[in-house]
Protein backbone atom coordinates (compact mmCIF):
# COMPACT_ATOMS: atom_id res chain seq x y z
CA UNK A 1 0.00 0.00 0.00
CA UNK A 2 1.55 3.30 -0.97
CA UNK A 3 1.72 6.06 1.55
CA UNK A 4 -0.76 8.29 -0.24
CA UNK A 5 -3.42 5.64 -0.12
CA UNK A 6 -2.72 4.91 3.52
CA UNK A 7 -3.05 8.58 4.38
CA UNK A 8 -6.30 8.76 2.50
CA UNK A 9 -7.77 5.80 4.35
CA UNK A 10 -6.65 7.23 7.66
CA UNK A 11 -8.30 10.53 6.98
CA UNK A 12 -11.42 8.86 5.63
CA UNK A 13 -11.69 6.67 8.73
CA UNK A 14 -11.20 9.60 11.08
CA UNK A 15 -13.76 11.64 9.21
CA UNK A 16 -16.28 8.83 9.47
CA UNK A 17 -15.75 8.49 13.21
CA UNK A 18 -15.95 12.23 13.66
CA UNK A 19 -19.08 12.32 11.54
CA UNK A 20 -20.83 9.76 13.71
CA UNK A 21 -19.59 11.04 17.03
CA UNK A 22 -19.80 14.76 16.47
CA UNK A 23 -23.54 15.34 16.65
CA UNK A 24 -23.97 13.50 19.93
CA UNK A 25 -20.82 15.02 21.41
CA UNK A 26 -22.01 18.40 20.22
CA UNK A 27 -25.36 17.89 21.89
CA UNK A 28 -23.83 16.91 25.22
CA UNK A 29 -21.40 19.77 25.05
CA UNK A 30 -23.99 22.31 24.11
CA UNK A 31 -26.74 21.17 26.41
CA UNK A 32 -26.05 23.75 29.05
CA UNK A 33 -25.29 26.33 26.43
CA UNK A 34 -28.43 25.56 24.45
CA UNK A 35 -30.65 25.95 27.46
CA UNK A 36 -28.95 29.21 28.28
CA UNK A 37 -29.45 30.59 24.80
CA UNK A 38 -33.07 29.48 24.76
CA UNK A 39 -33.44 31.42 27.97
CA UNK A 40 -31.81 34.43 26.31
CA UNK A 41 -34.29 34.27 23.46
CA UNK A 42 -37.14 34.08 25.92
CA UNK A 43 -35.70 37.04 27.84
CA UNK A 44 -35.56 39.10 24.73
CA UNK A 45 -39.16 38.39 23.84
CA UNK A 46 -40.24 39.31 27.34
CA UNK A 47 -37.52 41.51 28.88
CA UNK A 48 -36.78 40.93 32.54
CA UNK A 49 -38.08 43.76 34.67
CA UNK A 50 -35.13 45.51 36.19
CA UNK A 51 -34.92 49.16 37.10
CA UNK A 52 -37.07 51.84 35.62
CA UNK A 53 -38.39 52.27 32.17
CA UNK A 54 -40.12 55.54 31.56
CA UNK A 55 -42.93 55.71 29.07
CA UNK A 56 -45.82 57.89 28.02
CA UNK A 57 -49.38 57.27 26.98
CA UNK A 58 -50.96 59.83 24.68
CA UNK A 59 -54.74 59.80 24.76
CA UNK A 60 -55.45 61.41 21.44
CA UNK A 61 -59.19 62.00 21.93
CA UNK A 62 -58.57 64.24 24.94
CA UNK A 63 -56.75 66.69 22.71
CA UNK A 64 -59.77 67.03 20.47
CA UNK A 65 -61.95 67.52 23.52
CA UNK A 66 -59.60 70.24 24.77
CA UNK A 67 -58.73 72.40 21.77
CA UNK A 68 -55.45 74.20 22.14
CA UNK A 69 -54.10 71.76 24.70
CA UNK A 70 -51.65 70.17 22.27
CA UNK A 71 -50.19 73.54 21.36
CA UNK A 72 -49.86 74.42 25.04
CA UNK A 73 -47.86 71.24 25.60
CA UNK A 74 -45.59 72.10 22.72
CA UNK A 75 -45.00 75.64 23.83
CA UNK A 76 -44.36 74.61 27.46
CA UNK A 77 -41.66 72.22 26.32
CA UNK A 78 -40.07 74.57 23.85
CA UNK A 79 -40.01 77.48 26.30
CA UNK A 80 -38.48 75.47 29.10
CA UNK A 81 -35.83 73.94 26.89
CA UNK A 82 -34.89 77.10 24.99
CA UNK A 83 -35.89 75.60 21.66
CA UNK A 84 -35.44 78.25 18.96
CA UNK A 85 -38.07 79.15 16.40
CA UNK A 86 -36.53 80.05 13.06
CA UNK A 87 -39.84 80.59 11.35
CA UNK A 88 -39.07 78.31 8.43
CA UNK A 89 -39.30 74.60 7.73
CA UNK A 90 -35.74 74.14 6.52
CA UNK A 91 -34.01 75.17 9.77
CA UNK A 92 -36.83 73.95 11.99
CA UNK A 93 -36.02 72.55 15.43
CA UNK A 94 -38.70 70.80 17.44
CA UNK A 95 -38.78 68.44 20.40
CA UNK A 96 -42.52 67.84 20.46
CA UNK A 97 -45.00 68.86 17.83
CA UNK A 98 -48.48 68.31 16.41
CA UNK A 99 -49.13 66.07 13.42
CA UNK A 100 -52.16 64.54 11.80
CA UNK A 101 -53.01 60.86 12.05
CA UNK A 102 -51.95 60.03 8.50
CA UNK A 103 -48.46 61.37 9.13
CA UNK A 104 -47.94 59.78 12.53
CA UNK A 105 -49.19 56.39 11.36
CA UNK A 106 -48.47 56.32 7.61
CA UNK A 107 -48.36 52.52 7.67
CA UNK A 108 -52.02 52.31 8.66
CA UNK A 109 -54.22 52.21 5.59
CA UNK A 110 -57.80 52.04 6.82
CA UNK A 111 -60.17 52.19 3.88
CA UNK A 112 -62.38 54.62 5.70
CA UNK A 113 -61.62 56.50 8.89
CA UNK A 114 -63.69 58.30 11.47
CA UNK A 115 -64.12 61.93 10.50
CA UNK A 116 -62.77 63.14 13.84
CA UNK A 117 -59.40 61.60 13.02
CA UNK A 118 -58.86 64.00 10.17
CA UNK A 119 -58.20 67.12 12.19
CA UNK A 120 -57.19 65.43 15.37
CA UNK A 121 -53.97 66.95 16.72
CA UNK A 122 -51.57 64.15 17.59
CA UNK A 123 -48.51 64.95 19.67
CA UNK A 124 -45.29 63.54 18.31
CA UNK A 125 -41.94 63.38 20.06
CA UNK A 126 -38.95 61.14 20.60
CA UNK A 127 -40.15 57.58 21.24
CA UNK A 128 -37.30 56.79 23.65
CA UNK A 129 -37.05 53.40 22.03
CA UNK A 130 -36.00 50.41 24.05
CA UNK A 131 -33.88 49.42 21.05
CA UNK A 132 -32.91 52.81 19.62
CA UNK A 133 -31.35 52.88 16.10
CA UNK A 134 -29.98 56.38 16.72
CA UNK A 135 -27.84 55.11 19.60
CA UNK A 136 -26.50 52.32 17.41
CA UNK A 137 -25.59 54.80 14.69
CA UNK A 138 -23.88 57.52 16.76
CA UNK A 139 -20.10 57.27 16.28
CA UNK A 140 -19.18 59.08 19.51
CA UNK A 141 -21.77 57.89 22.04
CA UNK A 142 -23.09 61.44 22.08
CA UNK A 143 -26.53 59.87 22.14
CA UNK A 144 -27.06 56.95 24.48
CA UNK A 145 -29.70 55.02 26.35
CA UNK A 146 -29.82 55.48 30.11
CA UNK A 147 -30.74 52.88 32.68
CA UNK A 148 -34.17 54.43 33.12
CA UNK A 149 -34.94 53.95 29.42
CA UNK A 150 -34.48 57.57 28.41
CA UNK A 151 -32.50 58.14 25.22
CA UNK A 152 -30.30 61.10 26.07
CA UNK A 153 -28.03 63.48 24.21
CA UNK A 154 -24.70 64.97 25.24
CA UNK A 155 -24.45 68.13 23.16
CA UNK A 156 -20.84 68.60 24.21
CA UNK A 157 -19.78 65.49 22.37
CA UNK A 158 -21.96 65.61 19.25
CA UNK A 159 -19.91 66.14 16.10
CA UNK A 160 -22.95 66.93 13.97
CA UNK A 161 -22.64 64.05 11.50
CA UNK A 162 -26.44 63.61 11.54
CA UNK A 163 -26.16 59.85 11.29
CA UNK A 164 -28.71 59.62 14.13
CA UNK A 165 -31.16 61.68 12.08
CA UNK A 166 -30.89 59.27 9.18
CA UNK A 167 -31.26 56.39 11.62
CA UNK A 168 -34.30 57.70 13.51
CA UNK A 169 -37.40 56.06 12.01
CA UNK A 170 -39.67 58.63 13.65
CA UNK A 171 -38.16 61.92 12.47
CA UNK A 172 -37.76 62.98 16.08
CA UNK A 173 -34.36 64.64 15.76
CA UNK A 174 -33.46 68.18 14.75
CA UNK A 175 -30.16 69.69 13.74
CA UNK A 176 -28.91 73.18 14.55
CA UNK A 177 -28.34 74.31 10.99
CA UNK A 178 -27.46 77.77 12.29
CA UNK A 179 -26.78 79.55 15.55
CA UNK A 180 -29.87 79.10 17.76
CA UNK A 181 -28.88 82.21 19.71
CA UNK A 182 -28.95 84.37 16.61
CA UNK A 183 -31.54 86.92 15.56
CA UNK A 184 -33.77 87.08 12.50
CA UNK A 185 -33.78 89.87 9.91
CA UNK A 186 -35.95 92.03 12.18
CA UNK A 187 -33.59 91.66 15.11
CA UNK A 188 -35.91 89.25 16.93
CA UNK A 189 -34.02 86.48 18.74
CA UNK A 190 -34.88 82.93 17.66
CA UNK A 191 -35.28 81.99 21.32
CA UNK A 192 -38.05 84.35 22.36
CA UNK A 193 -37.58 84.12 26.12
CA UNK A 194 -34.58 82.39 27.54
CA UNK A 195 -35.07 80.05 30.46
CA UNK A 196 -32.06 80.85 32.59
CA UNK A 197 -32.24 77.46 34.32
CA UNK A 198 -31.62 75.47 31.14
CA UNK A 199 -28.88 75.82 28.52
CA UNK A 200 -29.42 76.52 24.86
CA UNK A 201 -27.66 74.47 22.20
CA UNK A 202 -24.96 75.58 19.80
CA UNK A 203 -24.71 75.54 16.05
CA UNK A 204 -23.88 72.18 14.46
CA UNK A 205 -25.29 69.71 16.99
CA UNK A 206 -28.36 67.47 16.94
CA UNK A 207 -31.05 67.82 19.59
CA UNK A 208 -34.28 66.17 20.62
CA UNK A 209 -36.72 65.54 23.46
CA UNK A 210 -35.03 64.29 26.64
CA UNK A 211 -38.22 63.24 28.46
CA UNK A 212 -37.45 66.16 30.80
CA UNK A 213 -34.74 64.18 32.50
CA UNK A 214 -33.64 67.38 34.29
CA UNK A 215 -37.12 67.78 35.78
CA UNK A 216 -37.46 64.12 36.73
CA UNK A 217 -34.22 64.48 38.67
CA UNK A 218 -35.80 67.04 40.97
CA UNK A 219 -39.10 65.23 41.35
CA UNK A 220 -41.10 67.04 38.68
CA UNK A 221 -42.96 65.45 35.78
CA UNK A 222 -42.21 66.31 32.14
CA UNK A 223 -43.37 69.77 31.11
CA UNK A 224 -45.86 68.57 28.51
CA UNK A 225 -47.39 66.10 30.96
CA UNK A 226 -47.69 68.81 33.58
CA UNK A 227 -49.68 70.98 31.19
CA UNK A 228 -52.03 68.06 30.48
CA UNK A 229 -52.36 66.94 34.11
CA UNK A 230 -56.00 67.92 34.59
CA UNK A 231 -57.24 66.27 31.44
CA UNK A 232 -55.05 63.15 31.81
CA UNK A 233 -54.38 63.41 28.10
CA UNK A 234 -50.77 62.48 28.77
CA UNK A 235 -49.82 59.84 31.29
CA UNK A 236 -46.16 59.51 32.14
CA UNK A 237 -44.38 57.16 34.49
CA UNK A 238 -42.31 54.08 35.16
CA UNK A 239 -43.74 51.22 33.13
CA UNK A 240 -41.81 48.70 35.21
CA UNK A 241 -43.65 49.75 38.36
CA UNK A 242 -46.84 47.67 38.35
CA UNK A 243 -48.59 50.21 40.56
CA UNK A 244 -47.78 53.26 38.49
CA UNK A 245 -50.58 55.07 36.74
CA UNK A 246 -49.10 54.36 33.33
CA UNK A 247 -48.96 50.63 34.04
CA UNK A 248 -52.65 50.71 34.96
CA UNK A 249 -53.53 52.64 31.81
CA UNK A 250 -51.52 50.29 29.61
CA UNK A 251 -53.24 47.31 31.19
CA UNK A 252 -56.74 48.63 30.81
CA UNK A 253 -56.61 50.43 27.47
CA UNK A 254 -55.72 49.26 24.01
CA UNK A 255 -52.77 51.30 22.78
CA UNK A 256 -50.79 51.42 19.57
CA UNK A 257 -47.17 52.32 18.87
CA UNK A 258 -45.62 53.99 15.85
CA UNK A 259 -44.18 51.56 13.32
CA UNK A 260 -43.68 48.67 15.75
CA UNK A 261 -42.69 46.28 12.94
CA UNK A 262 -39.12 47.60 12.82
CA UNK A 263 -38.27 46.35 16.29
CA UNK A 264 -37.44 49.60 18.02
CA UNK A 265 -39.88 48.98 20.90
CA UNK A 266 -41.02 52.60 21.40
CA UNK A 267 -41.92 53.87 24.86
CA UNK A 268 -44.72 56.04 23.52
CA UNK A 269 -48.22 54.58 23.35
CA UNK A 270 -51.25 56.11 21.67
CA UNK A 271 -54.87 55.65 22.58
CA UNK A 272 -56.78 56.58 19.44
Amino acid sequence: MDSKRRDFLKIAGLTAIAGIAAPSAFNTLLKGEANASAQAVADKACPAVTGKRYGMVIDVKKFTENPGLADQCVSACHTIHNVPDFGNKKDEIKWIWVESYSHVFPENTQYKRPDVLKDMPILTLCNHCDNPPCVRACPTKATYKKKDGIVGMDYHRCIGCRFCMAACPYGARSFNWRDPRGKDANGQPFIKAENSKYPTRMRGVVEKCNFCTERLAIGQIPACVEVATQTKALVFGDMNDPDSEISQVLKTSFTIQRNPAIGTRPSLFYII
Binding site: K147, D154, H156, A217
Partner: peptide
Protein backbone atom coordinates in the same frame (compact mmCIF):
# COMPACT_ATOMS: atom_id res chain seq x y z
CA UNK B 1 -20.40 66.04 36.79
CA UNK B 2 -21.70 66.10 33.25
CA UNK B 3 -20.91 62.49 32.44
CA UNK B 4 -22.18 61.27 35.79
CA UNK B 5 -25.46 63.16 35.62
CA UNK B 6 -26.24 62.80 31.92
CA UNK B 7 -25.19 59.20 31.43
CA UNK B 8 -25.24 57.45 34.79
CA UNK B 9 -28.20 59.26 36.26
CA UNK B 10 -25.96 60.56 39.04
CA UNK B 11 -27.16 62.91 41.71
CA UNK B 12 -27.65 66.54 40.78
Amino acid sequence: WRDDILREGGSR
